[in-house]
Design a binder for these strands. Structure first.
Lengths: 249, 249
DNA sequence: AAATATTTGTACGTATGTATA
DNA sequence: CTATACATACGTACAAATATT
């Protein structure tokens, strides 16, 4: 057995890589490092913690997966951005894996999007009332133009929702809105449904959302949000009995 | 179904451990494995993918961090539960790390809790109207009793919010509610604030929430939710200028 | 522009702890 | 209790990417 006097490893039942993970997190907290700050090299951490490099590397992988650290090959290790990317990856995987009828997971994601948008409505209306927002206007115009030519406008859509959420001054909610947007758009095309054809309807819904918010019309804003997700809801409900098509795939 | 260049020759610029991660995910998807299903052993994966043990292990660590796989020492590797634990860990870390005034991150978390609860209000009221819910009643009584004796009721609080969210039939929202509850309760005591003293007020708020929901009173439910978070909001606002003096960069 | 030092990425061998039959 | 299968951990060597001189 390992000499228990070594490096304060009290509980041999706790895996090395796990305790190493916690120690690295503690290092970041104790030294009050910010995202982007550099961490010691792997070899330095090895000698500091008295563990092998494999354990440090596995701990780093774990932390990198959570965006707590960011590793750059040949350069070094840094404090991560603490984004919601891990949430997105997990939910996308769940959405694609989702057994039986694949649509249940996606429908849940859409419901969360609706819930977040609806929850935003009130403070959004009071934030935007009486203002003009050229950036959002430009995005809506881009959507309308592209929809008129039958072209998709994924990036503008993303920008619109993100910019709208940014008005709340709560970065976490903005990140959540963006995260679920990403999950949604990543999962949807995997399910083999027909791509949304009601582009103009969606574009108009964005226009309505912006107009209602700028008018401070909470009721109208809620209705516009509902209308915004209507085409998607129809697509999901319409494909309800389509099964999983196990013969294909 | 999977992005094209994965099964075959990988890009030389893509790190081994990263492509290995994707390949393991693909294996789960292609074989339609469910949470709890067993995966091949590490050595089998090594020979199947033609990579070394280290790469497989680092890939497994990454996937385990996201709860996509679960490794049991001496037993094997299994498909994970795809929970929101990664989100919780990341947000807790961010909440504790949060620079400058530590309360900003926690306040954002609380705002998200309010947003989720508020978004739930409408469908919750229509789900619970006219029903009686002995499980929720029991939990509220437990809170009232404990608060009368000055005792905290953390577990009952957790159960209440989780059980309430379960009524929506959307497991993702329920998981989100629980996840942000966990972040909240994990971060709060780390900030050195006085523990919440208004226990009776919080207990009463839960009673009001349940009563309003069972009465189908959406307005009253929203008010009860606001009241529920009022003590916490006061604590956060009261400690506004209590920075730690470390300064921002 | 090119060599070089630093740092992470990958591979392999070996020994050990852990769970199951 | 023994045996087997598996994950965990360590150490070393080398490859690849990056920055600096």
């Amino acid at each position: 057995m390992v000499s228990s006097a070594e490096a304060g490893v009290a509980f041999p039942s706790a895996p090395r890589a796990e305790t190493t993970t916690q120690q690295i997190k503690n290092y970041i907290l104790l030294n009050r490092l910010h995202p982007g700050d550099m961490l010691p090299t792997e070899t330095e951490i090895c000698v500091a913690l008295g563990v092998s490099r494999s354990s440090v590397r596995e701990a780093m992988r774990r932390l990198a997966a959570l965006d707590i650290v960011e590793v750059r090959h040949g350069h070094g290790t840094f404090v991560g951005q603490l984004s919601l990317a891990p949430l997105v990856e997990g939910l996308v995987f769940r959405g694609i894996l989702s057994p039986g009828d694949d649509l249940a997971a996606l429908r849940e994601v859409v419901d969360v999007r609706v819930a977040l948008d609806t929850a935003m409505a009130e403070s959004l209306a009071s934030s935007l009332v009486g203002t003009s927002n050229p950036d959002l206007d430009t995005l809506v115009e881009e959507m309308e133009q592209k929809s008129a030519h039958g072209q998709p406008f994924l990036e503008a859509d993303r920008e619109f929702h993100s910019a709208l959420a940014s008005r709340l001054g709560n970065r976490l909610i903005q990140q959540l809105v963006t995260a679920f947007w990403e999950v949604h758009t990543a999962v949807y095309p995997q399910l083999g449904l027909a791509p949304a054809r009601e582009l103009d309807e969606t574009a108009r819904a964005h226009r309505s959302i912006l107009r209602a918010a700028e008018a401070g019309d909470v009721i109208g804003l809620r209705e516009a949000i509902t209308a915004h997700y209507a085409p998607l809801r129809r697509a999901l409900d319409g494909a309800k009995g389509a099964g999983d098509g196990s013969g294909r795939h």
